[in-house]
């Protein structure tokens, strides 16, 4: 029975544990581990939805909840699309593991899937970390409140 992580620390710790399992165990349990990793990716996006006071969707997009969760997370937050392909890579590696017949391919995809899920977790936790300061993503919108930028009104006439 796998316990659901309650926060990013627990989630990242679980990724470290999975990374540390020996090759024979990983091969024998590859499909189960792939399912768990997919679920951890979903957990990351659920944390994001909850932080925005939303109920995480359980819908599926292209057959996967994680893709629907990403779509939900990016609504009104275009910079969240910076992890769109990361989510799709998680699905891709998951599918490779389910289809693979060669141990080398299975273990390689498992290793990469762990790293891709970790990247998603670090990216989203980083965005939450700075959320009190605004949106610092490269594809960000303005971090300032409208009241702070009156000076620019005279110049551009916007806001």
């Amino acid at each position: 029975m796998v316990t659901q992580p309650e926060n990013f620390d627990e989630l990242l710790a679980r990724l470290d544990e999975i990374e540390g399992v020996d090759g024979a165990y990983a091969l024998e349990n590859a499909k189960g581990l792939a399912g768990e990793l997919l679920s951890l990716g979903e957990n990351v996006l659920q944390f994001w939805a909850i932080s925005r006071d939303e109920v995480p969707t359980s819908d599926k997009k292209e057959g996967f909840v994680i893709l629907a969760l990403h779509k939900q997370g990016a609504k009104g937050e275009p910079s969240f699309n910076a992890c769109r392909e990361t989510c799709r890579e998680i699905v891709f590696q998951h599918n490779v593991i389910l289809q693979a017949h060669e141990p080398k391919v299975t273990l390689g995809a498992l290793k990469l899937m762990i790293m891709v899920v970790r990247h998603l977790a670090l990216f989203v936790s980083g965005k939450l970390e700075v959320s009190g300061l605004g949106e610092f993503c490269c594809a960000s919108k303005s971090v300032r409140q409208k009241s702070d930028i009156q000076d620019s009104v005279e110049l551009t006439g916007t806001v």
């Binding site: 891709f92 891709v116 990247h119 990216f123 970390e129």
Partner: peptide, 11 residues
């Protein structure tokens, strides 16, 4: 697999 993922530059 991470060819378009975030580098953390903004952080």
């Amino acid at each position: 697999p991470l060819k378009t993922s975030c580098c953390g530059g903004a952080h």
